[in-house]
């Protein structure tokens, strides 16, 4: 590989360093484990550095990176065929009032959502992305993001109210 273009690689590095935890958390939720999530993030950024000269800049770069991480995590998940989306939290890691039974129920509930709803939830709450960026990542309009999020909320609302009262 030849000498890399400084500014664009630096821009990719800045996103990596500032949002690494969010990337892994989101990718881990999609891929089924933090380790697989970290693999997906690593693969996505290796890919980004390799093709940095052809990548967009600014906010579009951020959206491209998120899309690549999401796709890499989906690939890892498909490859590993690990079942439910959430396998991350170790059993007994929090014995307290998080409630093992409630948490497992939530896992199943989230795992049963349609993929777009699930990804939208992860990108909204784990990645903390705004609707416009989520729309760019998933290839849908911001209005569709809002509607998808609303649908996910509606599905989850009843169950969540049960476990929090």
């Amino acid at each position: 590989m030849g000498r890399m273009h400084g500014s664009q690689v630096e821009a990719i590095e800045e996103v990596y360093r500032s949002q690494y935890g969010r990337f892994v958390r989101t990718a881990g939720a999609i891929a089924g484990s933090s380790e697989h999530g970290a693999d997906a993030v690593h693969d996505a950024f290796v890919s980004a550095v390799r093709r940095h000269e052809r990548l967009p800049e600014g906010e579009a770069l951020k959206a491209w990176l998120w899309r690549t991480v999401v796709n890499a995590a989906k690939d890892v998940r498909a490859r590993e065929a690990r079942g439910p989306a959430h396998n991350v939290i170790a059993d007994g890691a929090d014995l307290g009032s998080n409630g093992v039974g409630d948490r497992e129920g939530m896992r199943i509930l989230v795992g049963a959502l349609p993929e777009r709803q699930r990804l939208t939830l992860f990108l909204r709450y784990y990645a903390d992305l705004d609707y416009a960026t989520i729309g760019e990542v998933l290839g849908v309009a911001p209005g569709t993001v809002a509607a998808t999020l609303n649908a996910a909320h509606t599905t989850l609302r009843g169950k969540l109210q049960e476990v929090t009262r």
């Binding site: 959430h86 991350v88 939530m106 896992r107 939830l121 709450y125």
Partner: peptide, 29 residues
């Protein structure tokens, strides 16, 4: 709903304190 769902999701997925390994990304690239 927003807070309710966020709260529930935050409890499902652990925070990631790891900072990654940018040098390894560059090396693998």
């Amino acid at each position: 709903d927003d807070v309710l769902v966020r709260d529930a999701l935050y409890r499902l997925e652990p925070e990631v304190a790891d900072r990654g390994n940018w040098a390894q990304v560059l090396a693998d690239a």
